[in-house]
């Protein structure tokens, strides 16, 4: 009994999730970077939130949220840096595939799934920040390899931490609210 008037593209829920997601991730990136102790290196909680949204709503929402939130953040500093914006969108896209195996809304979260999620996030972070973003800087902006790989590797490490710790905790907390098939009794 689903409505017959579906149009192609995103579902309404995906549109709303993208909108709310961009707002939250932008604010996390803009106002709440967490200093790591290493100068000029911060942990971006926005990436953890992108991973959470991707794991619930899938690759399209992950990619769009990452793209626009990163773009807004860059614009708010006066300077869009396209290679990193695109790399972020690709990260959001990859991490969105965790929706397929996590199935948070219908199945319980297991240790195995959390391991798979973390495996995926490490691979996605390495590909996006360790390879795509620096290569983009070399090819498009013609910057020296040493500098861009240093920046790329730093981002890889901090984002793996952000998604691995905060993202994993968000997913676990959300999963607990989704599946309570077993009957609850007062005692």
């Amino acid at each position: 009994m689903k409505s017959g008037k579906r149009t192609k593209g995103l579902s309404v829920e995906a549109v709303v999730a993208t909108g709310v997601g961009i707002a939250i991730v932008f604010l996390l990136k803009r106002f709440l970077p967490i200093p790591t102790g290493v100068p000029n290196t911060t942990i971006d909680l926005g990436e953890a939130f992108i991973a959470f949204l991707g794991s619930v709503f899938g690759p399209a929402v992950g990619a769009l949220v990452a793209f626009f939130a990163h773009l807004f953040n860059d614009l708010s500093w006066g300077d869009p840096w396209w290679t990193w914006i695109v790399a972020d969108a690709i990260f959001g896209f990859f991490i969105g595939f965790s929706q397929r195996f996590l199935k948070l809304k219908t199945t319980p979260l297991t240790k195995k799934k959390l391991f798979q999620f973390n495996l995926l996030q490490v691979i996605a972070n390495v590909i996006c920040w360790g390879i795509i973003a620096p290569l983009g800087d070399i090819l498009v902006y013609s910057q020296p390899a040493g500098k861009v790989f240093l920046q790329g590797i730093t981002a890889t490490v901090t984002d793996i931490l952000s998604v691995g710790i905060v993202g994993t905790l968000l997913i676990s907390a959300y999963a607990k609210t989704q599946t309570q098939k077993k009957r609850l009794t007062k005692d």
């Binding site: 607990k176 609210t177 989704q178 005692d187």
Partner: peptide, 10 residues
């Protein structure tokens, strides 16, 4: 007290 072991979402 009777609900102490319930998830809050319930």
């Amino acid at each position: 007290y009777p609900y102490r072991n319930w998830p809050i979402s319930a």
